[in-house]
Amino acid sequence: MDAGTRNRLRARLVSLRDELLTQGSMNIPPARTDVVSTPDDDEAPLTHMTQAIASNRNRERADRLEQIRDALALVDEDPEQFGLCEVCEEPIKPRRLELMPWVVLCVACQEKHEHEHRSPGSRKHLGDFQ
């Protein structure tokens, strides 16, 4: 990868990191607003679902921030390794890096990894989204 492309991807990573940091975490609403009242039976499932969604988004946001920080560290500390698959050491396709500059696996290795860690019944493949 040439230095210009690497610098452009680094700038994109910084922009994505800053955007995630600016957004902050989602607030997780409490199940009840006061200690004395009991939750409304109709409202409880919605509150639980809202809490689960907020919690999942916060976890995904934290995971993405960590991936972006790792990618930035790689660009700064070992720029020649940035853009190479961690498993097969082949270059990751430019289009993939443009869309997700934090990725560390090429499509083939990502599919293999997902296949090994897929829950039963899941049929989606990374190649379905290219």
Rank of each mutant, 00 (worst) to 15 (best):
N27F: 10
G83Y: 11
F129M: 05
P101N: 03
I92A: 01
P94C: 05
P29S: 00
Q130G: 10
E90D: 13
R57P: 00
L46D: 08
H115N: 10
F129L: 08
V35K: 00
L126H: 11
R69P: 00
R12V: 15
L74W: 02
D40L: 09
L21K: 14
I53L: 10
R64K: 09
A54E: 09
T22Y: 04
T5Q: 15
E114I: 07
L99F: 01
T47F: 12
H48T: 10
E89G: 00
D63R: 07
R59Q: 03
Q23D: 14
S37H: 00
D40Y: 06
G4I: 09
Q23K: 11
L16S: 06
C88I: 05
T47W: 11
R95Y: 04
R32S: 11
V107C: 09
G24P: 14
E86V: 02
A3P: 02
G83Q: 05
G4R: 10
N7H: 05
Q110D: 02
D18A: 05
E80I: 10
R10D: 01
G121C: 13
V36F: 00
H48R: 12
A62D: 15
E114R: 11
V36N: 04
L65I: 13
R57M: 10
H117F: 11
G4Y: 03
A54N: 07
R59T: 07
G4S: 08
E111T: 13
A31V: 15
A71L: 02
D128I: 04
D42R: 07
A62H: 15
D128F: 09
L21Q: 14
K112A: 13
V103G: 01
E89T: 01
H125W: 01
R8W: 03
L84W: 05
L99S: 03
G4L: 07
G127F: 06
E111N: 07
D70H: 10
W102A: 00
E116R: 04
G121T: 08
M49G: 03
L72W: 00
R61F: 01
E98S: 03
L46C: 04
H48S: 06
L65V: 07
R61S: 15
I53P: 03
D63C: 02
E43Y: 02
R32K: 14
R12L: 15
R123A: 12
A31Q: 14
F82W: 14
A108D: 14
L13K: 06
L74N: 01
R118T: 06
T5C: 10
H48Q: 11
P39L: 13
L20R: 04
N58D: 00
R64E: 12
F82C: 01
P39A: 15
H117T: 12
R57N: 08
P39Y: 06
E19S: 15
A73R: 06
C109M: 08
K93D: 15
S25W: 12
R6A: 15
R64I: 03
Q81F: 07
M1Q: 13
S37Q: 03
G127S: 09
L65F: 08
C85Y: 05
P29K: 01
A71K: 05
A11E: 15
K124F: 14
